[in-house]
Design a protein around this nucleic acid. Structure first.
Length: 762
DNA sequence: GGGGGCTATGGGGGG
DNA sequence: CATAGCCCCC
């Protein structure tokens, strides 16, 4: 491909970035540290492709969030103008859904297929478990769903699952030997319902390409001559397999570019595997690799802290991010006595920083490990009158009233959608109770037909008969309306005919009015969707504005995709959803053992490593100010829990912390009860060193040795416990060390994997 | 059989 | 603290 060096945007890039952007053909791998201009490289590379003659419609750029795709498109547009609209940029799920909307009939699905969200999936699984007379305590739907999801992500069919000794042995060990049967029934039920779950959007896409009906594979291989994958470390096996197929075209070189950072791989729980990066080099031996290591986001103390933390992970691609920025502000550490005090002190600090550094609300983010932690901060921010916005948790489309109307719409588009039917057959109340619904479901199962078909064919003698007739009448009327009207008019008709609008209007409470507003706003959204005249690449005019297309689109939306990001609000979100974002001031909260790292991740070293990468992601969101907080005690399950401060706090070298805040750093749980029950005000300022041995080690002189070098009999120094003697080391690398300075309990069990110990005498 | 209210139980991260 | 399941009344 011809390259003209006269493109001005190339001057905005450093050397490595420019090399990556101009490497247009063949396989390319970009390892991009946080804040290293990854998005810039991706977007300029696409712009450069277009400027060098590539057809924008032949470029496929796969991301993990709609937001990332949207931002990418906007930035490409700034360089190449409206040609950017022709680029296939979107999430794996949304682009594959768009393709399947055209092609699904070739693999036994209706093109108007329904997308089951995880609640729908769980509902199906619950029904199956019930029908198999299994105990749902033994087979929790959520966990069964994860197993099925993992199987799908690894291209394991129900048959292959049953034949896989490892999987079956694991299930037997967990006393859930019948998961393979549930999986088989689940897959069959989804097909019968004309429904795909999130994994199916990938799996069915794979099947489409693999089975290649009507040479559809060549069609898309020809279509996508340039394939790009963002956040490649988050792809699972199935996604990578699809990408590989798409990137292949006859005998020409494969133009595939992946961008990722192994240190930011945080989605193994949904099947992402770091192996894909290693495998990529194997699959494409002629790959050119570029490492972006200069960080343009954060000041030096923050970058240092990130580097220090990540060295605790053994398995990493070697790289060290650096910045040419100033040292900046040191990291603040806040110790709170309780979770609500944590909320207060974070709010205080926000006010203080706003004043002192002239920051706006939107410059702040509070990042937590679990969404349930948001409540505390909400309460306090509201009390302080600080505007905030919560991401994650309940999204707009998971609200009850929205799901109710959406379920009616789903029924109208696809009457085989049993999950939707079950949701609305008795809402608003029309006297069709659980036992009747169970009956219908049973008959549908026995005859392998949909519940809607049962309603049409069965003679109901019970007194539910009249009510059922009412329901089928409503749905039929709505279906008739949908044939002639556009999606918006149909939806308004459905909202009225179903009785939903009437039901909500009769509720005059404040919450009731809110629900009505939400439904109105959903209808407005459909109107906007219908009136939007822009046709995305690959979309057919006839189907693009259909109700089915609308439903498929919204089922892949998260509340991050809502407008309103430009408002001046503090951002509250999980660390997971903060990936890719940056803020002037970041609070990483709840830094306690069993919370961050999560108690569910305390089992294997690999899981701890992933938590550490998550922490790495969290702290590298900060541009100028980073504050880490933890609480002595917090409410969990309605009762108080005490956790030690997170190990991650200690993994950052002391010199990066604000010394005024580090005085309070290490409380002494378990060994002293004096910290409980004290007045809250004192709690913040009381130094715990009184209860600890006086250890006079200047952190500057402390150089920890590698854990492998620690041997029995050595005298070592520990920053907190002082000098000690190593008594023993067991096979798990846990050392027993006696520290004479600790009076009551001098022998400590130290995990060498995490401990920092300096050898003073062999 | 259906509806409403009460009690017990269980909660990671996300497309 | 939200939801499912259970019990009791209609």
């Amino acid at each position: 491909m011809k390259q003209d060096v006269g493109f001005s945007y190339l001057n905005e890039l450093n050397g490595v970035q420019k090399d990556a952007v101009t490497a247009l053909e063949g396989p390319v791998m970009v390892i991009a540290g946080p804040g290293s201009g990854k998005t810039r490289v991706l977007t300029y590379r696409i712009a450069h492709l277009i400027n060098c003659g590539a057809n924008p419609g032949q470029i496929l750029a796969l991301t993990f969030t709609n937001k990332a795709a949207k931002e990418m498109k906007a930035r490409i547009e700034r360089v190449v103008g409206n040609q950017a609209n022709k680029v296939w940029a979107g999430t794996f799920h949304s682009l594959f859904a768009r393709i399947l909307r055209v092609e699904a009939h070739r693999i036994g699905y209706p093109n108007d297929f329904t997308i089951y969200d995880s609640d729908d999936s769980k509902g199906v699984i619950d029904d199956i478990i019930k029908s198999m007379n299994l105990d749902k305590k033994v087979y929790p739907a959520g966990q069964v769903r994860s197993r099925i999801s993992a199987a799908k992500s690894n291209l394991i069919t129900p048959k292959a699952y049953a034949a896989n000794d490892d999987l079956m042995a694991l299930d037997r060990m967990n006393r859930r030997p019948l998961i393979y049967q549930i999986y088989e029934k689940y897959a069959a039920k989804c097909i019968r319902a004309g429904a795909m779950d999130f994994d199916d959007l990938l799996l069915q896409m794979y099947k489409l390409l693999y089975q290649n009906p009507d040479n559809v594979r060549e069609k898309y291989q020809r279509q996508f001559r340039f394939v790009m994958v963002d956040e490649f470390q988050d792809t699972n096996y199935l996604q990578y397999e699809i990408v590989k197929i798409l990137a292949k075209y006859q005998n020409s070189e494969e133009n595939i570019c992946i961008v990722g950072d192994d240190a930011q791989s945080i989605y193994s729980f949904r099947g992402a595997t770091i192996e894909n990066i290693l495998q990529f080099e194997h699959d494409f031996p002629q790959v050119r690799t570029y490492k972006l290591e200069q960080n343009y986001r954060s000041t030096n103390f923050i970058v240092n802290a990130a580097n220090e933390v990540i060295t605790y992970n053994k398995k990493q691609i070697q790289k060290k991010i650096f910045t040419e920025k100033e040292d900046g502000k040191r990291i603040k550490l806040i110790k709170a006595m309780t979770d609500s005090e944590e909320g207060k002190r974070v709010s205080d600090t926000i006010i203080e920083q706003k004043n002192r550094y002239n920051l706006a609300n939107k410059d702040f983010a509070i990042l937590y490990r679990t969404n349930s932690q948001s409540r505390i901060f909400e309460e306090q921010l509201r009390r302080y009158n600080i505007a905030y916005r919560i991401y994650g948790g309940l999204s707009f489309y998971s609200r009850k009233e929205i799901k109710d109307l959406v379920s009616y719409l789903r029924m109208v588009v696809n009457d085989k959608d049993d999950e939707a039917l079950k949701r609305v057959i008795n809402y608003p109340k029309r006297g069709i109770g659980n036992s009747t619904i169970e009956q219908i479901s049973q008959i549908a199962d026995d005859n392998e037909i949909s519940m809607w078909q049962v309603l049409g064919q069965m003679e109901f003698t019970s007194r539910a008969a009249k009510n059922i007739a009412e329901f089928t009448g409503i749905i039929k009327a709505c279906k008739a309306k949908a044939v002639t009207a556009n999606a918006y008019d149909a939806a308004v008709f459905i909202a009225k005919a179903s009785g939903i609008l009437g039901e909500l209007k009769s509720d005059t409470s404040l919450e009731g009015q809110g629900r009505l507003e939400n439904v109105t706003s959903l209808l407005d959204g459909i109107k906007e969707f219908v009136e939007d005249d822009e046709l995305a690449p690959g979309e057919e005019v006839a189907t693009s504005k259909s109700l089915a297309a609308f439903l498929q689109t919204i089922s892949l939306m998260t509340d991050q995709d809502k407008d309103g990001a430009d408002q001046d609000t503090v951002t509250l979100m999980s660390v997971h959803s903060a990936k890719g974002l940056e803020f002037k001031s970041v609070f990483v909260v709840g830094l306690e053992e069993n919370l961050f790292p999560s108690y569910q991740a305390m089992i294997t070293a690999d899981q701890i490593d992933e938590e550490r990468r998550l922490f790495y992601v969290a702290i590298t969101r900060a541009e100028e100010h980073l504050t880490l907080t933890y609480a002595n005690s917090r409410y969990h399950f309605g009762n108080m829990r005490f956790n030690d401060p997170s190990r991650f706090i200690e993994e950052i070298d002391q010199k990066n912390y604000d010394p005024l805040t580090i005085l309070n750093k290490k409380p002494d749980f378990g060994e002293s009860s004096s910290s409980f029950g004290e007045p809250k005000l004192l709690g913040n300022f009381k130094t715990k060193t009184l209860n600890q041995p006086q250890i006079n080690i200047d952190p500057k002189d402390f150089v920890p040795n590698r854990s492998e070098d620690i041997k029995v009999g050595q005298k070592v120094i520990h920053l907190k416990f002082g000098q000690g003697t190593v008594k023993s080391i067991d096979e798990r690398m846990v050392a027993s060390i006696v520290f004479p300075a600790l009076n009551d309990n001098p022998e400590k069990r130290i995990m060498l994997q995490y401990a920092k110990l300096q050898i003073v005498e062999e």
